[in-house]
Nucleic acid binder design. Structure first.
Length: 166
DNA sequence: GCCAACGTTGGC
DNA sequence: GCCAACGTTGGC
């Protein structure tokens, strides 16, 4: 993609992201996110045994904006896509965006994440779909986006759900 | 394994 | 600048 093309794309994406909200509302606290990974590539258990990881390989402008909006201390739900299709735990941002070392070309970003806690039980996409308050989650509306904003209400609802026996 | 939805590319 | 075509993702 050419540079002007990339800039245009970024402008368009910016319109529709939570990035704007943090800027204009000067959001006082931490914003929750959701990061998605196929467990065959990098599972929650891999993450826990590593203790921390560089979240690299994101090649999508919308996801990149979200990575760049992350602040140290922000929480991110860790979701297993394809196999399991469940939120597994909560990660914490420990380093803000920096150039993705795995990017051969192009201007891509990575952040560093550390596991904070496993959910008492995984919360599946199927279960999420049964909860009215969670039906508008980006996970449901645009399941392909690999780094997503999550509202405070959604984040709290997922944790509450996980604390309850099914 | 299929295929719908999405993001990107490139011809016009 | 539009949009058809393509490649990829990920739920089913």
């Amino acid at each position: 993609l050419s540079e002007p093309g990339a800039r245009r794309m970024e402008e368009r994406v910016r319109e529709s992201t939570v990035h704007r909200d943090r800027k204009t509302l000067n959001f006082p606290t931490h914003m929750p996110w959701l990061v998605k990974q196929e467990p065959s590539a990098y599972s929650w258990d891999d993450f826990v045994s590593d203790g921390r990881t560089a979240w690299t390989g994101v090649r999508n402008y919308s996801a990149r904006l979200n990575l760049r909006a992350m602040k140290v201390g922000d929480r991110a739900l860790f979701y297993h896509s394809v196999v399991g299709k469940s939120v597994m735990g909560v990660a914490k941002v420990i380093k803000t965006a920096y150039p993705d070392p795995t990017a051969e070309d192009g201007d891509w970003s990575a952040v560093d994440l550390a596991p904070e806690k496993a959910l008492p039980r995984p919360i599946s996409m199927d279960e999420i779909k049964t909860i009215p308050a969670l039906k508008e989650m980006v996970l449901i509306k645009n399941s392909r986006l690999s780094v997503q904003p999550v509202t405070e209400a959604e984040f709290a609802a997922i944790l509450k759900l996980a604390a309850k026996k099914k």
